[in-house]
Write a protein that binds this DNA or RNA. Structure first.
Lengths: 204, 204
DNA sequence: CTCATAAGGTACGCTCCGTACCCTAAACTC
DNA sequence: GAGTTTAGGGTACGGAGCGTACCTTATGAG
């Protein structure tokens, strides 16, 4: 009773309309209470429907969670352009840090854990959250630095491009959940990323 | 009924003996079936006791899981000494990869997810699995390379020392669960770690 | 108008966590 | 060695939550 979504008339939604209502309800649940509280009953109630309609579309709770997260996080990644390699790197790292330290980041971590045994769901999540798109951003960023003469030519390597994000993720894994302080970000850039990208040519 | 541990006589275990039996049972459950199957009832049955005795010692299932894991994984970390920086780095990375790709690594990942909301448990786990001890190993390894003239003096930096393990963890996060191939390890060493450690002096 | 399809409603089985209660064996005290 | 405290054993239960079954009822297509 008392569904949160508008179910004004006695009309009965079908197909895409109902699917969208379910996804909205699940995403809202994720946003406000997290994955642990996104129970099937709550989602069904919030969407003004019942679990049957959900299970006809998603085989399990984790699948709905991933779908709702993808529906929720449609963030497009803008590659910063500050003019310097250091500025670009810091901007990209700070953006990632903001995302990961937000409640949305906690949801993402929970989902990654919940989908650990489902390769299909994992790929979906990786596409959405810091997957290939982020690596591509770092590569273009390095490429621009190479063009400016700020970095060695061989630095535009995928493995090199993945270093800052890996270190940031490491901070989240090592520390508990709070935000990573900005000093850590600058240290990653100044002590690892810049030396690696600049000095890399000498022994290639 | 039919406890797996020897409960031959009518003797009733107490204190440390019982605690040890519970830990053994939980560790065995972790080893053979994983954390998901380590239910409190199963552990109690396998230890030949009941849940009461468990909950008097550990407040929740996650706490028991962490304790059992620490009991199970008493691996001491030996710092390799192959004579070259590259050999040492590869050896350390391969050892970590072996651990993480084993069933024990899967248990560790499950536990990390389960203990995500308990800072105390997280610190316990980090001590056990690739925490400060691993960073220390990498630091000594770099220190020896510096002494041999294989690395720049400023390379013995904690942040630098954490790079290879962070990249390895990144591989596990990005890919699903299988083992990380050896080519990735050599690429981490050759494309990132060695250039970083060797060439780092030029702009310090 | 008829009818297949899909949504709604509801109840249920199952697993598992964590707790409560009472009984009894072991250890400690004197 | 008898009494007392402590802690383990047995069992049952409440509650949450996932996933399923079954039937009823509205919707839209032919």
């Amino acid at each position: 009773m008392a569904p949160d979504q508008q179910r004004g008339g006695a009309t009965r939604r079908r197909g895409a309309a109902l699917e969208d209502a379910i996804l909205r309800a699940a995403a809202e649940e994720l946003r406000t209470a997290g994955y642990a509280s996104m129970t099937m009953d709550r989602v069904a109630q919030r969407a003004g429907t019942n679990k049957n309609a959900i299970y006809r579309r998603w085989p399990a709770r984790a699948a709905l969670g991933v779908a709702a997260y993808c529906h929720l996080a449609d963030a497009e990644l803008r590659v910063p352009d500050t003019g310097t390699l250091r500025g670009d790197a810091l901007a990209l790292l700070r953006a990632a840090n903001a995302t990961w330290s937000s409640p949305q980041g906690a949801v993402l971590r929970d989902l990654l854990a919940a989908a650990a045994d489902d390769p299909g769901l994992l790929t979906l999540l990786r596409e959405q959250a810091g997957g290939s798109s982020t690596d591509a951003a770092w590569l273009t960023l390095i490429g621009r630095a190479v063009a400016r003469g700020e970095a060695a030519a061989g630095a535009a390597h995928p493995r090199v491009a993945s270093v800052p994000m890996a270190l940031l993720r490491g901070e989240y894994a090592v520390r508990g959940l709070p935000e990573v302080p900005d000093e850590v970000l600058t240290e990653i850039v100044d002590e690892v990323f810049l030396p690696l990208v600049r000095g890399r040519a000498i022994d290639v």
